[in-house]
């Protein structure tokens, strides 16, 4: 599922930032945090204003014609040969892994494969391309981490989050049981099969609460919406934020609180 060998590029002068629609509408702070982190690494961030959505919701629902028309609109946004960074394993996976399939046998086949080859999950990019060194300015705290299934299995970045958090000297990372199990989001799955999704997220929250951590971080806003939304609705003592928000806040002396 994961490319057998990932060949990381050398650190570029610029990157394209693909924000994703969930970050755009619900978690722009996470997006801004990602941009700030990249800029602090000396990278110029290009944000194509014409970006919308990677097309994944339609794709996984089987509406490939619609997914293709939306995805096609994204293909033209990255004319230079800079890497494309995405603050989400799920949208990153869609672009990197599924664009080539989606555009197979179409005039855009070559372009889609070319774009796909430049897509990186943002934390992976920060760690393995920018070789970021984080200086922790926050108060001691304990967090748990949920890596999304697509970040883990499609983008192969399961080890990245813990490594980044490991650089933060005042952060104690605790692991929940069954860390690799899905939180039950799955895009339209959560509304098509609400009981099953509900049963999954309730167990995920339970295992997170059991770690004793009061907050968790995650690579993907879908999981965040799902897990934190369940915890909030059911008054469970755990809250969440995107790992980028957390990393940025900790290294700005703001004590790990989301602005």
């Amino acid at each position: 599922m994961v490319d057998p060998i990932k060949v990381y590029p050398s650190k570029p002068a610029k990157v394209y930032f693909y924000g994703t629609c969930l970050v755009d509408m619900f978690y722009p702070d996470a997006g801004i945090a990602g941009v700030e982190l990249l800029e602090r690494e000396g990278i110029e961030v290009l944000f194509p204003q014409d970006q919308t959505c990677c097309g994944q919701p339609a794709y996984t629902s089987g509406y490939h014609d619609q997914a293709r028309s939306v995805a096609k609109a994204q293909l033209d946004l990255f004319p230079g040969d800079w890497p494309i960074v995405v603050p989400s394993g799920s949208c990153g996976g869609m672009m990197r892994k599924h664009y080539p399939d989606l555009f197979k046998d179409t005039p855009d086949e070559v372009k889609a494969a070319e774009v796909a080859g430049r897509v990186w999950e943002l934390t992976d990019f920060l760690l393995n391309v920018c070789h970021i060194k984080l200086e922790d300015l926050g108060e001691p705290t304990t967090v748990a981490m949920h890596t999304s299934c697509s970040a883990r299995r499609e983008m192969g970045v399961a080890e990245v989050g813990p490594k980044l958090l490991g650089q933060l000297k005042n952060v104690n990372l605790v692991e929940q049981i069954r860390p690799e199990e899905c939180c039950g989001f799955g895009g339209t799955f959560a509304v098509r099969h609400p009981e099953i999704s509900g049963a999954m997220v309730s167990e995920k929250v339970e295992t997170l609460v059991d770690t004793g951590a009061k907050e968790f971080v995650t690579t993907d806003c879908g999981c965040l919406m799902n897990i934190a939304g369940y915890a909030e609705k059911n008054h469970k003592p755990v809250s969440g934020q995107h790992i980028l928000s957390f990393l940025w806040a900790r290294t700005q002396g703001k004590g790990g609180q989301q602005s």
């Binding site: 930032f17 924000g19 969930l22 970050v23 755009d24 509408m25 619900f26 978690y27 722009p28 702070d29 997006g31 801004i32 941009v35 944000f47 204003q49 970006q51 609400p194 999704s197 509900g198 997220v201 309730s202 919406m225 799902n226 939304g229 369940y230 909030e232 609705k233 059911n234």
Partner: peptide, 18 residues
């Protein structure tokens, strides 16, 4: 929302902030 709170729209989109 049978199981979760609804996600909250941000005051400004990432597009606007960028």
């Amino acid at each position: 929302t049978d199981y979760r709170t609804a996600p909250k729209l941000a005051a400004k989109t990432l597009h606007q902030r960028m």
